[in-house]
Computed example of a mutant assay.
Amino acid sequence: MAHDDRVTLPSFPTLESLPAADNPSLVAPPVAAALAGWPGAARVAVVDIDPELADTAAMSEAYDIPMTASGNCVVVAGSRAGDERIAACVVRADTRADVNTLVRKMLDVRKASFLPMDRAVVETGMEYGGITPLGLPPGWRVLVHEALLDEPVVVVGSGVRRSKLLLPGPLLADLPGAEVVPDLGR
């Protein structure tokens, strides 16, 4: 995909933004594939970071990024009548996903819990600490905390720990399969 130079990439002063779609080596393969087929990709940047700083609190402190501008992606699962239901929940980093009430009801399951880390890594093709809502397996729901849509720039994982994606908050609503949920984060 050719980068349209008329599009201003989202950025933070402490990070160097590159067009994500033009730099597939900086993201996990499923993320690169999703970017290649998504019209919103022209407005997504990728930034190199120290992998030791991939966890949100460390990254926010090291790169002077407000917690309100970071979206954490957690994978939640539950089942009903033998039918497993999985959702990736993207919540503002200064909140936690309301798994036990809201997500459980949305999945229509009796009990919802975080997908085990090793399984989440295998099924997404992404690294732990880098799982992102772009490039997830088909059939997974993508629940987006409505509060993130108000942020001019949101930082999310890139599928790997050595980089992050930056995108305009409102663009999260346009992610493939995204469902915007008020009060997803508490």
Rank of each mutant, 00 (worst) to 15 (best):
D48M: 09
V47A: 15
M126F: 12
F12L: 07
K164R: 14
R85S: 02
P137N: 07
L171N: 04
P39D: 12
L184T: 12
A173I: 04
E84L: 13
G177S: 03
E16F: 08
R186I: 15
P24K: 02
S113T: 03
V44W: 05
N23P: 02
P176Q: 09
N72Y: 10
D150E: 15
M67N: 03
N23D: 07
D118Q: 12
E84W: 15
A34T: 11
N100E: 12
G139W: 11
V44N: 07
L149G: 06
R6V: 10
L149Y: 13
G157R: 06
P29L: 02
A42V: 13
D50G: 08
P29R: 02
L15Y: 02
S158R: 00
L149R: 03
A69P: 05
V156S: 10
V142T: 15
R110C: 01
D48V: 15
P51V: 10
G129D: 12
P10M: 08
V46L: 09
V90H: 03
V74A: 05
S70E: 05
S79H: 11
D83I: 15
R162V: 00
A58F: 11
A87I: 13
R80N: 12
G135E: 01
D150S: 15
L167H: 07
L175K: 01
M117G: 00
A81T: 11
D118L: 09
D150L: 14
A34R: 07
A32I: 09
A58Y: 01
Y63E: 00
D50I: 13
S79V: 00
V160M: 04
